[in-house]
Design a protein around this nucleic acid. Structure first.
Lengths: 336, 336
DNA sequence: CTTGACTCCCAAAACGTTTTGGATGATCCT
DNA sequence: AGGATCATCCAAAACGTTTTGGGAGTCAAG
C-alpha cells in the first residue's frame, strides 16, 4: 500500500535502512529489523515490482509462446504443464506470461518484442521446428531458454523431449512382431522436429525388418489432417494393415477414415500423446506417452538452471516413451 | 538494444526529443521525427519495459489465477480462452500472466501479492464461488477485474457467464417431455456459483412439473466425483431414469457408474461444457455449451472496458446455453 | 591516547523512461 | 520596432527501488 519512503519516514529511519532491513541484511540491528518488519507488515507494504525490476535489471518474467494455429498447441496436458511450470517458477520469483502469436505475426517477432524490450529474463519454446529461427534468435541474444522438443541447431541448447525415434521404432516393431508387413505411417509436417523424428523411427524399423517403407502420408497435425492422410493411404493398391500415427489427434482422424471405409475396422492403429479422450474412442486408442512426471516442473527447473548459467549440454533431457496398451492396435494383421 | 540516452547522443538530440519523436508528438518537426525513427529502427531500439512501467505507474500486465485442484481448472477450452484473451489484450499493450495457486496458499493470497505489489493493472478470475473472497478483495482495492462466472456479491462486478439456470431448466424439461419422471441431478460443490445455479435450474423445473426433486447427489467436479455421486443415486430404492449432470466430467464418471450397474445402459444422461471427448464416449455424451464465439476475446474486451472505467453494470454478459444433441440422452424413460 | 575493528546507519547514485514547464528563435501582425 | 504567436527543442524532475561507499559511534587492544 505504501512505499519505502513513507515507511522510512514513519519509522524515523532512512530508506536504505528500511530496504536493507526487509531484505534481511546483517548490517541493520536485529531490533530495528524487527521493528521495520512489523511496521511493514502492518502497512501491508510490498515493494513496487516495476521499480525493483528497473533497478535490478531483471524482468522477473518468463514468456512462453503459444502458436495459434489449431492443432499446433502442443501436448494435450499443455495447460497442466503451464500451470506446473508457472508454479515452480513462482518459487523463484518469476512469473509466467503467455505470448500468443496473433495472425499475421511470426513467432520470431514475438520473441523479438519480448526479448529486446527486456520484458522477460528467459523464454520457453514449444513445438520446435527442425530449423527453428526462434532458437537462432535467442541464441544470438544470449538469453536463456528451454525448448520443449529438439532442433537441429548446430549449437546445443537446453531442451526436454520424448525419444520419438525409439517410441515409433518400437511401435513399428511391435506391429511387425504381431505379423504385420504393410505398416503405414501417418506423418506430421516434416519441418517439425517431433514429426520428422517419429517418421524416422518408423522408417528405420521398416528398413531393419526388410520391409518397404512406402506407405507414408503427411498431413496437418490435426484430426482432419489425419483423416485425409489416412484416406490417401487407404486408396493405395495394397492397403496397410496397421498405421502408426504421429499424434493422437491424427490417429483419431484416421479412425474416422477407417470407419468410412470397407474393412477399415480390420486395421490396427496407434497414436502418440495419450490424449485423455483416446480412452473413450471406440476402439479405445492405443498410444504412447513420454515418461517422467510433471513435465512443467521439469521444464521450469531446467530453465532456472539455464538462467543460473549452467551449460546447455547439461540441460538436455530425453525421456523414454512408454506404450499405452488399449484396443486399437489389436486387429488381425492378415485382413484388409 | 540501445537505450534512449545513447540514441539521443548519437543523434545529437536530447532524450526528451527522441522520446517524443518516437511517441509521435507534434512538437517535434516532421524531419527530425523521421530521422529519429530511422535511427531507432536501425538500432533496433525498444523502450525498456520496466522503466516505462515505473514511470507510467502501470504494470502493463494482467493476471489470471489458475486453481490447482484437479477438475477445478475451468472450462474445457480454457487454454483456447486464455490464448484468445491474451491475444486481444496484447493489442492493447497488456500481457497476460498466469498465476497458479501453489499448495498451501489461497487464491486470495495470490491476488494480494499481485495487486499490492502493483504487478498487475487488472485481474481475471475463473470458477467463482457464490461468496468469493477474491471478488471482495479486488473490490476493496478498486482494481478492475472480470470474472468468468457470477457471484452473489452485493456490489455488482463485471462478469461473463452462461445461463446455467435456464440451461438446466430446459434440459430437465426436455427429459420430462420425453416422459421421464424420476430425473436425478448430479451436482457440483454448492459453494461454486455455477454448480448452485445449475442445481436450481433442475430443481425449479422439477417443481414446475410437480415432480419431487429428491434425487440429487453432490460430488467433486471430477470424473471420480461424478462416479461416486451416480452410485449414490443408483442405490436409491427408486432409481432415476435420467440424470442431469453439472459438468461433462461428472457425466463421464456417471457413465462409468452406469456401465457397472445392471440396467444402467437404460438410463439417460446429459452433461455440460461440451468437452471434446464427449463426442467419443459410448454412448456419445449429450451436453450443453455456452453460446457466443471466442470467450477469450469477449473476456478481454470486457476487461479493457473495465480498465477504461465503464461501470460494472454495463459489463455483465449472460449467454444462453445451447443443447448439444448426441446419444446419451435418448434412453427410454420407462426402464431402470 | 591512538589504532583498528566492528556495529549500525545513511546520503546519493543509478536503473531508463515520460512529462512538465520552459527556452530559443523565427515569423507575423500592428 | 514591439509584441504576440508559433514551431522546435531541451533540462530536470519524477517514478520506487537497490546498492555503493562511506560516516558516526563504541569498544578492545596496543
Amino acid at each position: 500500500m505504501a512505499n519505502l519512503k513513507q515507511l522510512a519516514q514513519s519509522l524515523g529511519l532512512s530508506i536504505t535502512t528500511v530496504s536493507r532491513a526487509l531484505d534481511g541484511y546483517s548490517d541493520v540491528s536485529a531490533a530495528t529489523r524487527e521493528r521495520v518488519r512489523e511496521a511493514a507488515d502492518k502497512a501491508g507494504y510490498r515493494p513496487n515490482a516495476s521499480a525493483r525490476r528497473l533497478r535490478r535489471q531483471r524482468a522477473e518474467l518468463v514468456a512462453v509462446t503459444l502458436p495459434s494455429d489449431p492443432g499446433h498447441i502442443g501436448p494435450p496436458h499443455f495447460l497442466d504443464m503451464l500451470s506446473g511450470c508457472a508454479e515452480h517458477l513462482a518459487g523463484a520469483g518469476l512469473n509466467l506470461v503467455i505470448a500468443p502469436v496473433p495472425r499475421g505475426e511470426s513467432e520470431l517477432e514475438i520473441c523479438r518484442r519480448f526479448v529486446d524490450g527486456r520484458r522477460v529474463d528467459a523464454m520457453l519454446l514449444v513445438r520446435t521446428k527442425r530449423h527453428d529461427e526462434r532458437v537462432e534468435f535467442l541464441q544470438s541474444r544470449g538469453i536463456p531458454f528451454v525448448t520443449n522438443g529438439r532442433t537441429e541447431s548446430p549449437v546445443p541448447h537446453p531442451y526436454i523431449d520424448g525419444d520419438g525415434f525409439a517410441g515409433f521404432h518400437a511401435a513399428t516393431q511391435r506391429f511387425r512382431t504381431a505379423g504385420h508387413r504393410r505398416i503405414g505411417h501417418i506423418a506430421g509436417p516434416q519441418e517439425y522436429y517431433f514429426a520428422h523424428v517419429r517418421r524416422m523411427g518408423w522408417q528405420s524399423a521398416m528398413d531393419e525388418a526388410g520391409l518397404e517403407a512406402d506407405l507414408c502420408a503427411e498431413g496437418a497435425p490435426t484430426e482432419q489432417g489425419g483423416y485425409l492422410a489416412a484416406l490417401e493411404l487407404l486408396r493405395q493398391p495394397s492397403r496397410p494393415t496397421a498405421l502408426v500415427c504421429a499424434t493422437d489427434e491424427m490417429a483419431m482422424g484416421a479412425l474416422r477414415a477407417l470407419r468410412e471405409i470397407d474393412g477399415g475396422n480390420q486395421i490396427s492403429i496407434v497414436g502418440h500423446d495419450d490424449l485423455p479422450m483416446g480412452a473413450y474412442t471406440s476402439p479405445s486408442l492405443s498410444t504412447m506417452r513420454m515418461t517422467g512426471e510433471n513435465l512443467g516442473t521439469n521444464f521450469a527447473s531446467l530453465l532456472l538452471r539455464a538462467i543460473a548459467g549452467e551449460p546447455a549440454e547439461e540441460l538436455q533431457e530425453l525421456h523414454a516413451i512408454e506404450f499405452v496398451d488399449r484396443d486399437s492396435h489389436r486387429r488381425p494383421p492378415a485382413a484388409a
